[in-house]
Design a protein around this nucleic acid. Structure first.
Lengths: 188, 188
DNA sequence: AGTAATCTACCTACCAGATGGTAGGCTAGG
DNA sequence: CCTAGCCTACCATCTGGTAGGTAGATTACT
């Protein structure tokens, strides 16, 4: 099927980006993985930059949907945060970095259009977290002295950092205690 | 002077690694920065891998010395941790990622000898932090229920993560509140 | 002391292979 | 017949790395 190739390309691009980063992944790698010739990739994505941008866009859409689903299914802030944190745990379990964590280190040498998207992705996280925190405070579930913005940044940072360290140390188990700590310290 | 070139090469390599990462920095970049021909770099460092290894080694030595100095100069656990955290703040202020944070994302595609060193670097951090935490607990300065290993990982993760997010968001100010939070939550 | 041999730090000129990307052609299905 | 989806063949440029040479400092030997 036609469009399947496009999806396959995006899927393999995701894997490559999240394990190697942007600079260290090539059209040749991707072509081999998908079982297509290098030049054919250009038919679907004219440039590497466009491919990267499309990947982040689709990843961001999925993530946004997943975050919405959490809001719909979980009504407690703590549950919501635990579900959120589970994304990072399952990333590691799949043997990959979270996408934007993988790209952030290279941010400086990323094409502008990708830098913008990485920032947008983090902003999505931060805004969602802030919302959860505000509601949690209102419900008396979270400590009333929390500053939503700082707390959101702290949670995102901890999870990205724990992923990074776990990834480098090849110790996926190191992630969960970090989550537990953060959640515990913001509970009312 | 002769040996100055070697030092200069290491210094510029550090900057390049901490802003671009390993894959995205080249001998050509380095040659231009140092004002030497590409081939001459090979006189000092036979391969890119050797250069990377030498850089991490020297960075690790410096860091170890800095950590020792903290132990010598500060006797309170909280002060020690704040001094430790200041490294990450000043990294950002210099417009660079912490070295191993920058390299971690690429860990999977790094030459083995560099992967080993990155892990060793994190282990140095974690062991130092565990020592500080144990002493802090004994002195009654830190909460007595802290698990040194988990807490050390949490601190390292938070600082690396905060650096990563601050770097990607081009918002160096986002780092300090994260530090403050972590320190606050482990105080007795 | 004088000179020959060696070493250091750099150079120019290459190399094979990989990089992202292009041009143009074949083929199957609507 | 046209076009989506793929192909082969090619391109300039960059990658890390090598070969071999040169000027000048250092050392070793008589």
């Amino acid at each position: 099927m036609a469009t399947d190739t496009r999806e396959l390309l995006l899927k393999e691009t995701e894997t490559l980006l999240r394990t190697r980063g942007y600079a260290a992944f090539s059209y040749a790698d991707l072509a081999e993985k998908v079982g297509i010739r290098k030049a054919s990739i250009h038919h679907h994505f004219p440039t590497k930059e466009a491919l990267g941008a499309a990947l982040i866009d689709s990843y961001l859409d999925d993530f946004r949907a997943a975050l919405d689903a959490i809001l719909a299914n979980e009504k407690s802030a703590i549950d919501r945060l635990n579900r959120y944190a589970a994304f990072f745990v399952s990333s590691m379990k799949d043997g990959m970095m979270p996408l934007c964590g993988a790209l952030s280190a290279e941010a400086y040498v990323l094409p502008e259009s990708l830098q913008v998207r990485v920032r947008g992705f983090f902003e999505l996280h931060l805004e969602w977290l802030q919302g959860v925190i505000r509601e949690g405070k209102k419900a008396g579930e979270l400590r009333s002295d929390l500053k939503p913005k700082h707390t959101a940044t702290l949670i995102l940072s901890t999870l990205e950092g724990a992923s990074l360290v776990a990834w480098a140390m090849k110790d996926p188990g190191a992630i969960k205690p970090a989550i537990a700590s953060v959640v515990r310290t913001i509970e009312a």
